[in-house]
């Protein structure tokens, strides 16, 4: 069994309104020194098979569904 951790984040230069709103809320709550907040989505995918096959498969999953190349970068970590 392989567990792939897929991290989908916004590309540099793409606005992140959710992160900005969270930053604002944290400041309103009185947290000081918060410079920036970014939102990231993480998927944990459990699959049968070996790590080599899994890597290629997860890559394809990202391209076909999990990320939109227009705004997202993704990275895969096998556990």
């Amino acid at each position: 069994m392989v567990v792939a951790e897929v991290r989908v984040e916004l590309k540099k230069g793409v606005a992140d309104p959710e992160g900005k709103n969270t930053l604002k809320a944290l400041e309103l709550l009185g947290f000081e020194g918060v410079e920036d907040v970014k939102t990231v989505k993480v998927f944990e995918i459990e699959m049968v098979g070996n790590a080599g096959d899994a890597q290629a498969k997860v890559q394809e999953m990202c391209e076909k569904l999990l990320a939109n190349p227009v705004i997202h970068n993704f990275s895969v970590k096998l556990k």
Partner: peptide, 13 residues
């Protein structure tokens, strides 16, 4: 094959 555009989160969030 892959999306050429996206409808992203509104600026207002």
């Amino acid at each position: 094959d892959v999306p050429e555009a996206v409808l992203g989160t509104n600026d207002s969030g």
